[in-house]
Amino acid sequence: MSLVVGDVVDEVAFTVEEGKVGEFARATAALDPVHSDSEAAATAGFTALAATPTHVVVSGHHRDQRAMVAHLGLALERVMVGGVRWRYHRPLVVGDRLRGTRRLVADEQVGGRSGRPPMRRLTLETAFVDAEGATAVEWQETVLERGR
């Protein structure tokens, strides 16, 4: 299988879990107690413990990165993430049920000047939609494959 621009790369569905919010907050050195203390979150006006801003990265647990790399025809040892972009429509809280659909939105050759091999640049976009069907967070990843 080989994916082309516009194709769905993968889909994930998961719930924002309290333990995972805590793990991710610790792993990213977040200090705001709204991520760790239910009372602090309630005092701040959240309906439940708030997730940290890049929490949807935990979808990595529900994705098959090796399959993605194979479907995109990439050599894992030459793959780097070039950048990420996030758009927030609302903060995520514990209990949110999300479905994330990742699409390939661009596949380009870049660089290749001054005798260096060109790089392949892929742009992937995931929209995380909540149980009500509203998009909560959008995540764009730029993946680079260095030339041989």
Partner: peptide, 16 residues
């Protein structure tokens, strides 16, 4: 991102 939202509040981040 966590450092930024520790400062501005996670509910106020729009784009990064």
């Amino acid at each position: 991102a966590s450092w930024l939202t520790d400062w501005c509040g996670v509910e106020y981040l729009r784009e990064l």
